[in-house]
Every structure is written in structure tokens, then in C-alpha cells.
Simulated assay, not measured.
Amino acid sequence: MSLSPGDRSSAELPDGDRPTPQVVIEPDADRLARAVAEALVARLAAAQAVHGSASVVLTGGGMGAAVLEHVAGLVAEPVREVVDWQQVDFWWGDERFVPADSDDRNERHARAALLDRLDLPGFRVHAMAASGGDLATPEEAAEDYLAELREYAAAGRDLPRFDVLLLGMGPEGHVASIFPDSPAVRDDRPVLAVRDCPKPPPTRVSLGFAAINAAEEVWLVVSGAEKAPAVARALAGAPAEEIPAAGVQGTRATRWLLDAAAAGELPRAAG
């Protein structure tokens, strides 16, 4: 099998008994962000056609913000799929437990890139609690977020429907705030507090594997050559304790959306 830069078709890699992940490669980070934005708009429109509403779990980082900025650009463009943004629920995969006005907040970047431009009803934006408010600890914030997830879940379920869950990935393979060989990687709760995180800020709230893997589709959006070794290890089936990204999967689809640099160490067929 050959995976070439710019090949936007899905390529399948063997992955044991799990649903086979799809790999899509774009030439560079900007074209990757735009392609993901276009795919996200199409997926949310399709979800609304079936359910009347849609939901997405956002990720932080540079690529997360870049995708949302491209989505904002698409809102003003004539596109085939039209999303009713008033009927989209926005959740987060993780958040830094810092004051609400901190530039470290994923919520702030998402609002600046997209959410504040959409005139959304407040109840559609499900931000995780900040420090300095009514909830004194990340443990309390995690419990609060789990309660909100349950509030929006169908009867008899703990989690609402997630149509798409976006994830970035760190150079060491972390996703959300689940880092290699950390307590979070072995925690079976849907939402958890993370302390002593190896990447600052050290105190966070994160969805756990139980919530991430409940999403219909999980999209890992990864850019940069420094992440290529972890991408290759994850797709080769590394243990989740070593490469947490290897432990995520959607119930319907798992998509690795990469730029050419991040895909640089994936196996290529001879010739």
C-alpha cells in the first residue's frame, strides 16, 4: 500500500479486531485544516438531516483553532451542505483548569476562531469549568461536566450522541489530556481531573477513553514532522499506555487526518 502526500482518499491499515482506521494525507497544515473544516461541515449537515441536530467535541491547540477558523470562512461561502448552527452542540475533549480569562483556555481560542461569530444560544456551548469560580478543584469540575453530559444524554445513557470528536495529538502521543503512562490512561471514568500534567499548565479536566470512544466518529488531526514517529507507532498498534492516541476509536469510524510531514514515517508499499 502506498500513502502519498496529497492523497485525499482513505487508506486502510490493519488494526487487529478494531474497526480499521482511515488515513487521509494533505500536503501541508493549512490545506489539512481546510479539508477537515470542509469535512466537518458536511458531517454536521448529514447528522442534522438524520437527527435534526448535531454535536461536535472540539480540541485545542494550533490545528484545532485553524480548523475552526476555516469553518468560520466556510459559513460565509456557498457550500452544498448547509448547517443550522443553532442546532449544533459544542463540547470539549479537555480544558486547562485555569481562570476563565487565561489565554491557556481552549474555550477562549474556540470562541475567537468560530463560536462568537455564530450567535449561538448559550445552552449549545458546553464549556468545562474554569478555576476561580464556584468549583474549587478540577475533580469538582470533572463531576460537573459529567453531570452536564448526562443531562443531555438520551434516557438510560450516560453520554449524549457525539457525531464527531476532534482530537489533536502531541509528539509523545497524548490525546486530550491523556498522557503516556499517566493515571488518566488507566482511568475508566468518562470525565476525569488531571493533575501534574507533564505539559503546562499542569492541572486540567479531560474526557477519558470511555467518553472519547463513545463518539460515532473520532478524527485525529495531526500536523508536523515531530509527530510522525508517534503517528506511525499508533497506527502500528502500540499499547495505549505508551501512545494514548492508539487507544482511541469511534463507534462508526476512526479517521487519521494528517499533513505530509506527520505521515512521514508511515509504511509505504514498494514501488
Rank of each mutant, 00 (worst) to 15 (best):
G6M: 11
D7E: 15
D7K: 09
S9D: 14
P14H: 12
D15I: 05
T20A: 15
V24A: 12
I25A: 11
E26V: 07
P27K: 08
D30V: 12
R31Y: 06
R43I: 04
R43F: 01
R43W: 03
A47D: 08
G52E: 12
V57F: 00
V57H: 00
T59L: 01
G60P: 02
E69L: 11
P78G: 10
V79G: 14
R80E: 15
R80K: 07
V82R: 15
Q87K: 13
V88W: 09
F90C: 05
G93S: 05
F97L: 02
R105F: 12
R108N: 10
H109L: 11
A112C: 02
R117I: 08
L118H: 07
P121D: 11
F123P: 04
V125N: 04
A127N: 06
A127C: 13
S131K: 03
G132N: 11
G133V: 06
P138G: 09
P138K: 02
E140M: 09
D144I: 00
Y145F: 10
R150Y: 01
Y152W: 13
R157D: 14
D158F: 00
V164Q: 04
L166M: 12
G168V: 07
G168Y: 06
G170K: 00
V175D: 04
A176P: 02
S177N: 07
F179S: 05
D187T: 09
D188W: 01
V191M: 00
V194P: 03
D196A: 15
C197M: 04
P198Q: 11
P198M: 07
V205Q: 01
G208K: 00
G208R: 01
A210I: 00
A214G: 08
A214F: 01
V218S: 03
W219V: 14
W219L: 09
G224C: 05
A225K: 14
E226P: 06
K227S: 12
P229D: 11
P229T: 07
A232N: 08
A232V: 03
L235W: 03
A240P: 02
E242W: 05
E242N: 03
A246T: 11
G247A: 04
G250I: 06
G250V: 02
T254C: 04
L257T: 10
A262E: 10
A263S: 06
G264V: 05
